[in-house]
Design a binder for these strands. Structure first.
Lengths: 219, 219, 219, 219
DNA sequence: CATGAATGAGGCTTCATTCAT
DNA sequence: TATGAATGAAGCCTCATTCAT
């Protein structure tokens, strides 16, 4: 009840930047929890502590707001990723770091998963309109390519690896597990989100990627 | 089954069964296309060529209908899977068959993916109520376990593999690619659903699984 | 309060034709009173004693409902007009009847005027989509043409009259007076809608039309 | 008018007058295009290049702004009319000039028509509050009365003409044609706003007024 | 078994207007 | 004088569901 007190009293920010960010945050939460169609504009406005009309003033409509959210979460993950130290002497270690980062990012940002699922249900209709998002991903592919090259040169990795395929697989192994944890947990009767299970999955994913990348030995 | 039957015209028995199946088919299509929240009861009824009230008569409400759809698609995939010949002499080949089957099933049954995504958005709320679905999955885990055992015994596979983790990974590598093809295709600027790309993915998935399962060689 | 009683109790018609007509009537009243933009769907539904959703079920949207109203009022005026006995021996008398009818119709159907004004504000956007309305007006032009021909032949009328221009003038003299009675009354400080004034206008319109149609005498 | 004036930059005096006029012009355009209810305060402010709050500062509210617009357009038409040279030796010529002026004014000021229609939809609620508008119209009636008197005295005109009725008819013949051009054009399948049609209408209106005013000849 | 008619609740969006500076 | 930020009220429309036959 104190929160209310703060919101009701003269805490109307009148700070466009902060208000906009607040709306975006509330929208991210709502879209993540219920999907684009399931989220309620009313709830978002309430969550941001503003009037619905203001939301429309800033973002135009629900779909544009959804796109803004998508662009932000993409910028966030790629931003965090960019901060990784991957240009190490040791390509397998770099790869391990990338795998760990990806798994942990999904784990700590469940909204990323639901948001992308929702966008895919709509066949990426919104994202396709984005002008920034493509550019965000070139560096990622380049960096993975460089790690692979160095690793192949050193004999750490097998030679025939497509960086995009590899990245999709790294993501897939974590994303699918988390995205579908509820149905998988139900049908396999196993609490996949228990801490120990999550740690087991992390190791499994590392194993799969490492195992796959091992050079092929001819007997 | 008196005179009425004749007076009221083509009242073939089993109509009820067929009508029910028609509704289920229309519902599958609608839920797959738009998700649970996005599908319209009106559209389902129209698609099945029946009155909305009849749909309620048969299934009670939208959510129960959704669960019926889920149960059906799970039964379908597990049924097709069960028909696979995996008890071969050659465990790597059996594994390859399972991987191919899984990839191809997802490819040919895109509804399976959207339906599960939708159910996961709802944290498997409906599926948890199902009494049949769990039983459906025991054989799957058992069979994978058997293949692994035989393969390990023969030195085909590494020794530390959890069948459930493995199955989740096999599914993940295909499912995520297809489920997120639209966003991935957009951000990587690549048509992941082109025939050649799909075939490349199939090979990649095989490579990953085979690579992972290779016994660990100590130098 | 008895009306309510009837509406609230099992007087849900379940008679599609009657319900539809009721909605149309309520819509006519509302659009006439407030224009297309000013009328409220809520008010229309309440006026018809039905739920808003039903209105959308029958008419699709507000604009389609507006068009349905327009088509109905046009059909009504042209229908009433068609019932006039104009094929008399005496063309001036026929003309007089048409003038009187037109004036009185506008007087007794003020909704016709506001509806058309509203549609003209929208540049006839809705009416242009109508398939029926054009056909409705051919007979009118033909009949006026015939009266004129006979009158000219008999020396009752001047010779150079375009039937469409004439009809527009006959309508104009009454329509504008009634349509703009409020502003005209205000600026000229005169109650143009008093009974005596209306009767005076009727005579004036007859005078103008008769005066105009008189054959031109060369001195 | 101290230092501030120089510090705050181009604060020309009389800006207020110009700003007000700009708002009025934008409002006239918007109300003419969409009616009172259909016009958007936002659009008016944008059109005037000012902040919405300023508009409220100057005019109080939308309805008061609408009244201001009405008063201006009435002042404009009566002002232009007053500049006509009607006190000629030749009453029929004076009448012809008035008819031409009226027609042409409507033609060149379509906003006048839509604004009055909108005000009449509201039963002249705003205009009735105006203190200036009534006074504006006395001279008009007087002048028409004088022309009529002189013409009757000279035997140019019939004797029983009410100046207000006559003016209303002169206005009606042009106003209704233009106001309802879209619906009339649609139902009669004729482009009433083509240049040739407009010129034909002008001549027709002149014919009707002249024909009506001709003295009644007793055979 | 099957249907057409009807509805309550709620969703997205718009808009005139006011506030704080 | 002028502004950008913010809002309450309401408008159009949709949707899952029920009723009466």
């Amino acid at each position: 009840m104190p929160a209310q007190t703060f919101r009701k009293l003269p805490y109307r920010p009148r700070d466009a930047v902060r208000t906009r960010a607040g709306i975006l945050a509330a929208a991210t939460a709502a879209f993540a929890a219920h999907g684009l169609g399931g989220a309620r504009v009313d709830e978002i406005a309430r969550g941001a502590g503003v009037n619905k009309a203001l939301l429309y003033h800033y973002f135009g409509n629900k779909q544009a707001l959804f796109l803004a959210v998508l662009e932000e979460v993409y910028a966030n993950i790629r931003g965090a990723e960019a901060a990784l130290e991957l240009e190490t002497e040791n390509p397998p270690e770099a790869m391990e770091r990338l795998v760990d980062f990806t798994w942990e990012y999904f784990l700590e940002h469940p909204e990323f998963i639901t948001l992308l699922n929702s966008e895919n249900l709509h066949r990426a209709r919104h994202l396709k309109r984005s002008k920034q998002v493509r550019a965000l991903h070139h560096p990622l592919v380049d960096r993975i390519g460089e790690i692979l090259e160095r690793g192949i040169a050193r004999g750490d990795f097998r030679a025939d690896v497509d960086p995009v395929q590899l990245y999709i697989s790294i993501a897939a192994l974590g994303y699918f597990y988390l995205s579908n944890a509820h149905t998988l947990g139900t049908v396999f009767d196993r609490d996949l989100l228990a801490e120990s299970e999550k740690e087991a999955r992390r190791r499994h994913v590392q194993d799969v990627v490492r195992g796959y990348l091992r050079p092929v030995v001819l007997s």
